[in-house]
Computed example of a mutant assay.
Amino acid sequence: MDAGGGDRLALAVVAQHRMATTEQMHLMIAPGARVEQTRRRLAKLRDEGLIDRVTLPQAGRTRAWFVTQYGAEVAGGFAELRDWRPSRLATDRTAARLRAGHVLTVTQTALAFVQDARRRGDMCQPLDWIPEVYHPLGGGEAVIPDALLYYRRTGDSEHDWSMLRAFVEIDRATMGPERLAAKIGAYERLYRYVPVPVGRPRGGTVQEAQEEWRRRYPLFPRLLFVLDGTGSAGVENRLSALRAAARLAGADYIRQVPILAAPLADLLRDGPSAPVWRPATATEQSVSWVAPSAG
């Protein structure tokens, strides 16, 4: 592996995104080069035992790449893979094949944000999308979003920018609308969760307890639901369920945390920054997720 060049980036992207097709990898890491260069790079990493692939017959024999156990060990030493946790896909080809549909949809969503940022002059690199970040709720429970997104929005001048963060949930219509909407309540639990201090503080100083999420984020991330695998009627059913769940949430949580939903098809057609998002509190509206007042 060429540690100082594109090989390291390719391995890091495959590892962090869990799985990606050849086309997705090409558009992530080398959109300005010929696709043959990306194919050769992936083949080289496979020859070195760092990544492997499964072929998906139902998708026109598309090749989907994932890290091996050895590749996960190597990538685990990369400083740029913050919050990264190895996936079962690295040791189980069957798990890789069975989870390919969901994982590749998550990667496709990530690619939409990366490409949109490039067009807008914003900053969202492939490694700014971090799948499955563990957020404890106490008692062995946790919230694990499909992805945590970091997105730097550029303003009117060089020094005018803002950092946006979002929890992203991808719904492929494999669960009922009510189960999807229940995630709003799960994130509210995370919003309010204050861990119980263990042991006596040094020096006898008692620190004021605070919510666990404040250890990671200056503001609670936005909550984005990306809807796929269903037609317009299914989308409306899911929006209705999200709206009902938002009505049951605390007013402070709803006021502070934008909760938005959009069909994946709209994101791919118009770009994630377009006004294709429907606020859970006002599903008749359409807004941009990057707008300061979104939600």
Results as ranks from 00 to 15, higher is better:
Ala3Pro: 01
Gly4Val: 03
Gly4His: 04
Asp7Ala: 08
Arg8Gln: 04
Leu9Ile: 14
Leu9Ala: 07
Ala15Leu: 07
Ala15Glu: 02
Ala15Phe: 08
Gln16His: 12
His17Asn: 13
Thr21Leu: 09
Thr22Asp: 09
Met25Val: 14
Leu27Lys: 06
Ile29Cys: 06
Glu36Gln: 10
Arg40Ser: 13
Leu42Asn: 01
Leu42Lys: 01
Glu48Ala: 06
Gly49Ala: 05
Leu50His: 01
Arg53Thr: 07
Thr55Met: 14
Gln58Tyr: 12
Thr62Arg: 13
Arg63Cys: 14
Trp65Met: 06
Trp65Thr: 03
Trp65Arg: 01
Val74Phe: 02
Val74His: 00
Ala75Lys: 02
Ala75Asn: 02
Phe78Tyr: 15
Leu81Asp: 09
Arg88Ala: 07
Ala90Glu: 04
Thr91Lys: 07
Asp92Tyr: 03
Ala95Glu: 08
Leu98Glu: 11
Leu98His: 10
His102Lys: 09
Gln108Glu: 15
Gln108Tyr: 06
Gln108Trp: 11
Thr109Cys: 12
Ala112Gln: 04
Ala112Tyr: 04
Phe113Arg: 01
Asp116Thr: 08
Arg120Asn: 10
Asp122Ile: 00
Pro126Met: 08
Leu127Arg: 00
Asp128Arg: 10
Ile130Met: 07
Val133Ala: 09
Tyr134Phe: 15
Pro136Tyr: 03
Leu137Arg: 03
Gly138Asp: 06
Gly138His: 08
Gly140Thr: 11
Val143Gln: 08
Pro145Glu: 02
Tyr151Ile: 05
Tyr151Glu: 05
Arg153Phe: 03
Gly155Val: 10
Asp156His: 09
Glu158Trp: 10
Glu158Ala: 14
Asp160Pro: 02
Trp161Asp: 07
Leu164Arg: 07
Leu164Asp: 03
Arg165Tyr: 07
Ile170Thr: 06
Ala173Met: 05
Thr174Met: 12
Met175Ala: 11
Glu178Lys: 14
Leu180Asn: 01
Leu180Ser: 01
Leu180Val: 08
Lys183Thr: 03
Lys183Glu: 05
Lys183Gly: 01
Ile184Val: 15
Gly185Ser: 14
Gly185Lys: 04
Ala186Thr: 10
Tyr187Gln: 03
Tyr187Thr: 08
Arg192His: 13
Tyr193Cys: 08
Val194Arg: 10
Pro197Thr: 10
Val198Gln: 12
Gln207Arg: 14
Glu208Ala: 13
Ala209Tyr: 11
Ala209Gln: 14
Tyr217Phe: 15
Tyr217Val: 12
Leu219Asp: 15
Phe220Gly: 03
Arg222Gln: 13
Leu223Trp: 04
Leu239Lys: 00
Ser240Phe: 10
Arg243Asn: 10
Arg243Phe: 09
Ala245Phe: 03
Ala246Glu: 01
Leu248Pro: 04
Gly250Arg: 08
Gly250His: 06
Ala251Ser: 11
Val257Gly: 03
Val257Pro: 02
Ile259Leu: 08
Ile259Lys: 02
Ile259Tyr: 02
Ile259Asp: 00
Leu260Ala: 05
Ala262Gly: 05
Pro263Met: 08
Ala265Met: 09
Asp266Gly: 04
Leu268Ser: 04
Leu268Trp: 04
Gly271Met: 03
Ala280Leu: 05
Thr283Leu: 05
Thr283Lys: 02
Gln285Ala: 14
Gln285Thr: 09
Trp289Thr: 06
Ser293Asp: 15
Ala294Asp: 05
